[in-house]
Design a protein around this nucleic acid. Structure first.
Length: 323
DNA sequence: AAGACGGGGGG
DNA sequence: CCCCCAGTCTT
């Protein structure tokens, strides 16, 4: 029994005993998996679960989603953030249906390369769907897997050597026990989420600590073995961002929320939308220009439709969710 | 390589 | 208030 297979056995056993019972772990339906993985992009599990259940109740199949009103899809996304994901998910469903699914099962891509061509599906999600829906032994990196692989095989992330993304993917691929990619990838992701966390890894109860390069290095640096704890890891400095509540992102969210509250097909002119979005809305030229710019960006993203009305001044232009 | 893109929960 | 989180797409 070599080192890698011992490591594999230990993690799989840990996952078997400690893995959470999450709804998307009970299915291989590619549509369900696609929905869950899209929702899980930059969004925590606990917040996704209720939205996932509600979304599938509303749009039970790829065909249902493809033919739904985009407004309803955007409404169902409320609270999840990154609303473009909702639009892209529906577009992906439309592409899959256009490719002949479900009459032709091959209309639903089952390889990372095929999935990668769908809108909103990148390097991570294409691998995750290929693995979790189609049980392919493919490697992919999310923030958890990336961190675990890095610590396990290279060392603490704040110390050299630097590693490339491709190197970590190669390592991740080598770790997958053939034929058990589904369980393995769930397990390593779960370890990163529950034990090998970013700021305060709980190495003392990690099933892989005896196999882990970072653990060995951290522990060697500390002579108090009994009281040993990994160092508190300082978050990487990010570029200064303006306060969220004055940011573009915040107001975009406010605009979409205002439109969600409208009845189907109903629209709102900028003069009415403004006060719902901005506290100290004055309705002057500067305000209207500012709002129009945000609205224009949202229209570009497919999140709303706005009517260019040359007869009216800016205040009279109307906005609604896509039909 | 860097920024934009939401929102909620935790320290 | 700052940080983080099952990422993707566009400069």
């Amino acid at each position: 029994m070599n080192e890698t297979s011992a490591l594999q056995t230990d993690l799989l056993a840990w996952f078997q005993a400690n893995g959470r019972d999450l709804p998307w772990r009970r299915t291989r339906n590619p549509y369900y998996i696609l929905v869950s993985e899209t929702m899980l992009q930059q969004t925590q599990v606990d917040r996704v679960i209720p939205k996932y259940e509600a979304f599938l109740a509303l749009f039970p199949t790829v065909e249902a989603l493809a033919s739904a009103s985009t407004a309803d899809v955007i409404r169902s996304w409320q609270g999840l953030g990154y609303n473009r994901r909702a639009v892209n998910l529906q577009r992906a469903a439309q592409a899959i249906v256009a490719a002949g699914f479900p009459a032709d099962p091959a209309g639903f891509p089952n390889t990372p390369e095929g999935l990668r061509n769908l809108p909103g599906i990148g390097a991570y999600t294409s691998g995750a769907v290929a693995c979790f829906a189609f049980e392919r032994d493919v490697a992919f990196l999310d923030t958890n897997i990336r961190r675990v692989v890095r610590r396990l095989l290279v060392g603490p992330e704040d110390a050299p050597p630097a590693t490339t993304e491709q190197t970590l993917i190669d390592y991740a691929q080598q770790l997958i026990p053939p034929g058990q990619g589904w369980a393995w990838n769930q397990a390593i992701m779960e370890l990163g989420a529950l034990i090998c966390t970013a700021a305060k890894p709980q190495c003392w109860r990690c099933p892989l600590n005896q196999h882990c390069r970072a653990y060995a290095i951290w522990r060697e640096a500390n002579t108090q073995l009994d009281m040993w704890q990994p160092p508190v890891i300082k978050p990487r400095k990010k570029a200064a961002e303006q306060p969220f509540h004055s940011s573009n992102r915040y107001f975009r969210g406010r605009i979409i929320d205002a439109l969600r509250a409208l009845e189907a097909q109903q629209s709102l002119d900028l003069a009415s939308l403004g006060p719902q979005v901005k506290q100290d809305w004055l309705g002057n030229e500067a305000d209207l220009t500012w709002l129009a710019k945000l609205v224009s960006g949202l229209a570009q993203d497919g999140l709303l439709i706005w009517q260019y009305q040359p007869e009216q001044d800016l205040a009279g232009w109307s906005v609604r969710l896509p039909a």
